[in-house]
């Protein structure tokens, strides 16, 4: 049984290999959120990878709102058993179920809504959370958003809506890496005091300072779970480094959406132990 850290290392290998293989995709945010995905899919969530059901009754659900970090999503799904890891090699290629951005259209197990056009995931998560309440289903709904994504107005509709709708079975997470395509989030569109903003909108707000420290990520998600069902939706503001785990990609928006060449791939893989076997 691999440790979470070992699993995260393999997922990071998958990410750079997938993006290299397609010569397209988004490694930066994927690497930054690898520890979160690993904790979620291999420790935190109650889910049933071997028998995927769209309705997800009785299971925890996850929605990826910032769909461009599909590489980490696909790897986490495959490595946790939703589909064969060999299929990761088809990422972004013709006739693949692993489209550039996640979709239900190709019936890839583990995906419950398409995302990519930003700002829509939290609204879907609220609806799914309400459905769970209608169904007397006590399991939880997770949603990951990007910080740049919070530029979108619909996010703030959803942030206003969730407390009003009593969606206290949602644990949203913001990948707070401070970067978006055109530069830092401060420069592109200043987000201000995110923590205070979520609080005044009525959210139980947790700041995770070390979003690339597995122990911290797990502990914070556990804490968030303990806060569900108490009348407020929960948000984790998760500080991560874009490109985390690969020294030359880390902390810069330059690797938001470009693929490594052969040399860069080799350098990246040299930093990441192959723990579960490459696809």
């Amino acid at each position: 049984m691999a440790t979470l850290q070992e699993t995260a290392s393999q997922i990071r290998r998958d990410i750079v290999r997938m993006v290299h293989g397609a010569q397209s995709g988004h490694p930066g945010g994927s690497l930054g959120c690898t520890d979160y995905f690993t904790a979620l899919y291999f420790k935190i969530m109650h889910h049933n990878p071997s028998n995927f059901q769209m309705d997800g009754n009785g299971e925890d659900l996850f929605f990826l709102s910032n769909g461009h970090i599909s590489p980490v999503f696909y790897s986490a799904l495959a490595r946790s058993g939703y589909f064969d890891v060999a299929e990761l090699a088809t990422f972004r290629k013709l006739d693949s179920r692993l489209q550039g951005h996640p979709t239900t259209h190709e019936h890839l197990p583990g995906i419950r809504v398409a995302s990519g056009s930003l700002g829509q995931g939290l609204s879907v998560a609220i609806g799914a959370a309400l459905a769970k309440k209608y169904n007397n289903d006590n399991s939880l709904v997770y949603c990951l958003m990007g910080d740049g994504e919070l530029d979108e107005g619909q996010c703030w509709e959803a942030i206003l809506s969730a407390p009003h709708q009593n969606a206290d079975n949602i644990i949203a997470t913001v990948d707070w890496n401070g970067q978006q395509i055109d530069g830092s989030t401060d420069k592109v569109l200043y987000l201000g005091n995110l923590e205070e903003k979520f609080k005044v909108f009525g959210w139980e707000t947790i700041v995770l300072e070390k979003g690339n420290d597995m122990d911290e990520v797990v502990a914070t998600l556990e804490k968030a779970k303990s806060l569900t069902g108490k009348g407020k939706p929960i948000v984790i503001l998760m500080k991560t480094a874009m490109g985390a785990g690969i020294d030359f990609m880390e902390g810069t928006h330059e690797w938001h959406g470009i693929a490594p060449n052969d040399d860069q791939l080799a350098k990246a893989l040299a930093q990441l132990p192959e723990t579960l076997g490459d696809y």
Partner: peptide, 11 residues
């Protein structure tokens, strides 16, 4: 978006 999410629980 909420409507889309509600369908996931069979509504």
């Amino acid at each position: 978006g909420m409507a889309a999410g509600l369908t996931i629980g069979g509504k």
